[in-house]
């Protein structure tokens, strides 16, 4: 029995042949890791972890609506994400308002998604995949959509990087210095919506946080240098996705538990490594 389960979780028969088949998935996974790792540092700085979860649920509603009416699922999830991101951005300028807006939106989105899926009479695997992820074989169309969206997010972030950091740290001072703080906020939310929509294709709506929050949160435990945080966060996210795909290969289980477990393990490791340094530094700071 135990052996059976183990066999299901880790099965590496014909590994070499399988590897060739998932080449596209690996590239897609690495791309998503890059996007998740980079945007994750801003998600943490702007205190938007909960918003990521809220956006994911509405993205799920959009995707399942698309599945039901036979439209493009990726487009449906994109519409859901961006709508959610803009609503959360517009209604929740202050953190406290934001959390209640998200708390209200999230179950509504999830409920809509469940409704659409209940009405859908197609393959069950399609339904399950939206929530828990499916990156088995990424075809060329999906691939170009995914790479294109990721490129938009990365280029967008690169363009607004410095003012976004400034506005995230100290909005009043940034505004005094001429940073268009009120424009940056919705711009960032759109980029975040795009990132959530692409990530959902891989890890599913329920587990997006593992890609958009955990790697950055882990990196911030061990360093405060902005460059190192970004690099580490990307490294962790890519390792999680690509590692997850490689481990899941050959098993019948979806990829998401592998991804979430790797990213959680990395976070734990960083907490242990960073714990000591942070405590020591804090003692020094307090002794002054």
């Amino acid at each position: 029995m135990t052996g059976d389960i183990w066999q299901q979780i880790f099965n590496y028969d014909n590994y070499g042949e399988l590897l060739v088949l998932v080449r596209n998935s690996l590239i897609a996974g690495a791309m998503l890791g890059l996007v998740g790792g980079v945007i994750g540092t801003f998600v943490m700085m702007r205190d938007l972890a909960f918003a990521v979860h809220g956006i994911a649920e509405l993205s799920f509603a959009g995707a399942s609506a698309a599945l039901l009416i036979g439209a493009n699922v990726a487009a449906g999830s994109l519409v859901g994400s961006i709508l959610a991101a803009l609503i959360i951005g517009a209604l929740g300028v202050r953190a406290r308002d934001r959390n209640s807006v998200i708390g209200v939106l999230m179950p509504f989105g999830l409920g809509l998604g469940v409704l659409f899926l209940a009405l859908y009479k197609g393959r069950a695997a399609n339904k399950f995949g939206l929530l828990t992820g499916q990156i088995v074989a990424v075809d060329t169309v999906q691939m170009s959509w995914l790479v294109g969206t990721s490129a938009v997010v990365l280029l967008g972030l690169a363009a607004v990087w410095r003012p976004l950091v400034f506005a995230s740290l100290d909005p009043e001072v940034a505004a005094a210095r001429g940073v268009p703080v009120r424009v940056l906020s919705p711009v960032f939310m759109i980029l975040l919506g795009l990132s959530v929509a692409v990530s959902i294709q891989v890890v599913g709506a329920l587990l997006v946080l593992a890609l958009l929050v955990t790697p950055a949160a882990a990196a911030m435990r061990v360093t405060a240098s902005p460059i190192r945080v970004t690099l580490l966060s990307v490294l962790f996210a890519v390792t999680s996705v690509v590692g997850g795909i490689l481990l899941a290969l050959g098993s019948t289980i979806p990829i998401s538990p592998y991804v979430t477990t790797i990213s959680f393990a990395l976070y734990l490791g960083c907490r242990i490594v960073g714990g000591g340094t942070t405590r020591r530094a804090r003692q020094v700071a307090e002794s002054r």
């Binding site: 990087w161 410095r162 950091v165 210095r177």
Partner: peptide, 15 residues
């Protein structure tokens, strides 16, 4: 990094 934002934090692009 905080001090540097005063120098170029209002400019577009990467630091």
């Amino acid at each position: 990094d905080l001090v540097r934002l005063g120098l170029d934090g209002h400019r577009w692009g990467l630091p």
